[in-house]
Design a protein around this nucleic acid. Structure first.
Length: 284
DNA sequence: CTAAGTACCTGTCCGC
DNA sequence: TGCGGACAGGTACTTA
């Protein structure tokens, strides 16, 4: 589910909510969701949260970390005290059958208050791995991540990435090894903003178009973050709240509707097995 | 090396 | 109502 903006919102929420807590106990309700030895983080204190592309890393004070990927439907939801206890039987976020891991937290700061961090995942594609902090970068997903918009990306790097690729620009933008963090929603909208047909070969994109696309990517990602992420389906932040970016979709899931820029009708095709939306009038 | 296809899952929606 | 198929925010693996 979540793309860069959604994962960034979750990262900020975790920094605010869980940093400082000790992990008291971990309930693993679906064993395959958590790899590694969870005993390595029990009793340890959470000291920081990092994001790399769509991946999250929660760091502890004892040289261990949790590496997390939410894939399509993963959620991390925080709840304090009684609200956390009520969660298990509530329907507000998920029925308990989709809550696969529960981190019980305690001892933040001077107070001995308690809290919970729930990992929910309908489709069960996500993962949590207990690893050495020093080993995070050698995990396959993190090791192969490309350059990241809003972080280390520059126009020169971006033009370099697209200049030799024969594949369609849309497929390239979704390749996490070249550019980290973009997913189907923001790629569709960024190509619309830049006025580029998603089927164009990446190497056919000239300097002006590439510059427009570079800017468009940053614009849509920043707008996504500002809106609190896109909750077309089940995305929620750590407080269980939906985002609002779906109100700003320009072409994503808009097939059959009139383009906001040129009055053509938005079309849907399939590229690389993913729904692809574009305006045949102003994306050339 | 790239590219395409499939696998991993549950839930929802739409047509018959 | 029921059932089959398509589709859903993403990788990871196998095959060509």
């Amino acid at each position: 589910m979540p793309e860069l903006p959604e994962v960034e919102i979750i990262k900020r929420g975790l920094e605010k909510c869980v940093v400082g807590f000790l992990v008291g106990d971990v309930e693993i309700r679906l064993a395959k969701m958590l790899e590694g030895d969870v005993k390595n983080v029990v009793g340890a204190r959470i000291v920081g949260v990092r994001r790399f592309g769509k991946g999250l890393v929660v760091d502890f004070d004892n040289t261990y970390s949790l590496a997390i990927h939410l894939k399509m439907t993963g959620q991390l939801v925080y709840a304090e005290g009684a609200a956390g206890l009520n969660f298990m039987n509530s329907s507000r976020y998920y029925k308990s059958k989709h809550t696969h891991v529960v981190f019980k937290l305690k001892g933040k700061g001077k107070k001995s208050n308690s809290a919970f961090l729930f990992y929910n995942d309908i489709r069960q594609f996500g993962w949590i791995r207990v690893v050495r902090t020093s080993g995070v970068g050698s995990l396959g997903f993190f090791k192969n991540l490309g350059c990241e918009p809003l972080k280390d990306m520059t126009l020169e790097k971006f033009l370099g990435i697209i200049k030799d690729a024969k594949m369609p620009i849309k497929n390239l933008l979704l390749d996490q090894r070249r550019i980290a963090g973009l997913g189907n929603i923001y790629v569709n909208d960024a190509l619309f903003v830049a006025g580029i047909d998603p089927r164009r070969k990446a190497l056919s994109i000239d300097y002006d178009e590439g510059s427009r696309l570079f800017v468009a990517i940053e614009v849509v990602l920043k707008k996504g973050i500002a809106a609190g992420g896109a909750s077309e389906w089940n995305y929620v932040n750590v407080m269980g709240e939906k985002g609002g970016y779906q109100k700003f979709f320009q072409v994503y899931r808009k097939e059959g509707e009139e383009c906001s820029r040129c009055e053509e009708i938005i079309r849907k095709i399939v590229m690389g097995g993913r729904g692809t939306f574009y305006c045949p009038g102003c994306q050339v």
